[in-house]
């Protein structure tokens, strides 16, 4: 969904069009879920649905651009994630396992899917090992497709700080053992298509 389509869907959704809301959801949910996967691990699904509930309730009062919408959405997600982490801190420690729930279902293309799943989940879990600010900066830039200024807005930081955090994150990722090990396997890069919206 490019920015023009997003603008159309956004305007219709603000007017109350359910189909338009659904297409906004489809365009943003995968990236939202991956961002949350990095920052809250296995609570990502729960926090994502909380985020959408809040967005659904407030969307009719939204005034802003598509870019503003994405910043708004990810800001809501981040705040819900902060709440979630605060709650989790008071719960007994739970093991964080990204792969356990990702068992293959009865999808026709199971084999291919398993590879892709584990690959994406592996990538997200590696990014999640970064210091929090770096992980967030990298994920919002790469996965959510936000630019520096937008990322800075979501994180409540100055753009310069976001640039530095993201660069340090990449450096650290390049040094990561698993990244180097996988590179040693020298598999050709898989799908380069990205779920991020274009035009950013």
């Amino acid at each position: 969904m490019d920015d023009e389509e997003l603008a159309g869907a956004l305007a219709d959704a603000v007017r109350g069009d359910s189909a338009a809301f659904a297409s906004l959801w489809r365009a943003q949910q995968p990236a939202l879920l991956r961002y949350l996967r990095v920052i809250v691990g296995e609570s990502a699904e729960d926090v994502a649905s909380e985020t959408w509930l809040q967005t659904a309730r407030a969307l009719r009062g939204f005034t802003g651009t598509p870019t503003g919408f994405r910043v708004w959405l990810f800001t809501i997600a981040r705040n819900r994630a902060i709440d979630e982490r605060r709650k989790a801190r008071r719960r007994p420690e739970e093991p964080r396992d990204l792969t356990e729930r990702e068992l293959p279902g009865s999808h026709p293309d199971v084999a291919n899917e398993v590879i892709q799943r584990s690959e994406t989940d592996w990538a997200l879990s590696v990014i999640a090992t970064l210091p929090k600010d770096q992980a967030e900066a990298v994920t919002l830039r790469v996965v959510a497709g936000l630019d520096v200024a937008q990322t800075a807005q979501v994180l409540g930081k100055r753009p310069g700080a976001v640039r530095i955090a993201a660069m340090r994150g990449l450096r650290r990722l390049a040094e990561h053992d698993e990244v180097r090990a996988r590179r040693a396997e020298s598999m050709p890069p898989i799908d380069l298509q990205s779920p991020r919206t274009e035009g950013v």
Binding site: P30, E45, L53
Partner: peptide, 22 residues
């Protein structure tokens, strides 16, 4: 490889939950 995997196309389970939001 890392960045490509992180931005790979959405998988079916990443598109579950629309009904509740809708």
């Amino acid at each position: 490889r890392l960045l490509a995997a992180a931005t790979a196309p959405p998988r079916p389970h990443e598109l579950a939950g629309l009904d509740a939001a809708l």
